[in-house]
């Protein structure tokens, strides 16, 4: 499987080349176009219960699409729903990424996806919900963001503070705590930041340059209210 990002920027697509009988799993609905040799299968990743728990718990799609080059090599074009960048990551079996539920676009066959329960405070306050995706295994992983994607590299014990709604993914070697943005509660709320995540290295944190929740609030004012 080889991947190439087309039209990098706000409206990118990924071209995935598949050898004969290779598969790629993608978020359902992500396929834009494909060679005629590609078969589309719907698959419940992790079996029925795994899929159900992912659907119920993390709000991810119940089915993933599996695109198989069953009748010869071919290519698939994939795109996310929201405008924003795409990033390709290589999983080597050791590194693992925690991904917030809208961040996953596609992954190679060897990529393993499971729902992971967060700790109570992280789940309640982190803004990603109680469940996130834990993605490991081997092969290429394709993530998407809302807006541009930005990589933060942290050395051991280096710290960085991220507004929780801008999180896309982070490696499992990092740790984080939820904190108020300012020292007082009122300042935290009025500053518009509320709660933030204090990450501690080593590892990598991917953040997105736009906040989906704030964008939703902003756009709501332009939607006509029907009687």
């Amino acid at each position: 499987m080889k991947c190439e990002i087309l039209y990098p920027g706000a409206f990118p697509m990924v071209r995935v080349y598949l050898d004969a009988n290779e598969t790629v799993k993608a978020e359902s609905g992500a396929m834009v176009a494909a060679s005629p040799s590609i078969d589309i299968e719907s698959k419940m990743e992790g079996g029925f219960l795994g899929a159900l728990s992912r659907k119920m718990l993390s709000g991810e799609k119940f089915f993933f699409q599996t695109l198989r080059a069953g009748r010869g090599a071919g290519e698939v074009l994939l795109a996310p729903t929201v405008p924003g960048e795409i990033v390709l990551l290589e999983l080597d079996g050791v590194n693992e990424y925690m991904v917030q539920k809208d961040g996953f676009l596609a992954g190679a066959e060897g990529v393993k996806i499971e729902s992971k329960m967060q700790s109570l405070t992280r789940g309640l306050l982190g803004g990603e919900g109680f469940f996130i995706l834990k993605i490991g295994g081997t092969g290429q992983l394709i993530l998407n963001s809302f807006g541009a994607i930005h990589k933060i590299e942290l050395k051991p014990n280096e710290e960085y503070i991220v507004d929780n709604s801008h999180l896309v993914a982070w490696t499992s070697t990092t740790t984080y705590n939820i904190e108020k943005a300012s020292s007082g509660w009122i300042a935290s709320l009025t500053s518009g930041e509320g709660l933030v995540c204090r990450f501690r290295g080593p590892g990598v944190v991917y953040i997105q340059s736009r906040n989906p929740g704030s964008f939703g609030n902003w756009i709501r004012q332009f939607i006509p209210v029907s009687e």
Partner: peptide
């Protein structure tokens, strides 16, 4: 096959396998 990640100056942020 890698089974650990190494971090430090000059190494990738996500760790060297």
């Amino acid at each position: 096959t890698p089974n650990a990640l190494c971090f430090g100056d000059g190494l990738p942020g996500a760790g060297a396998p």
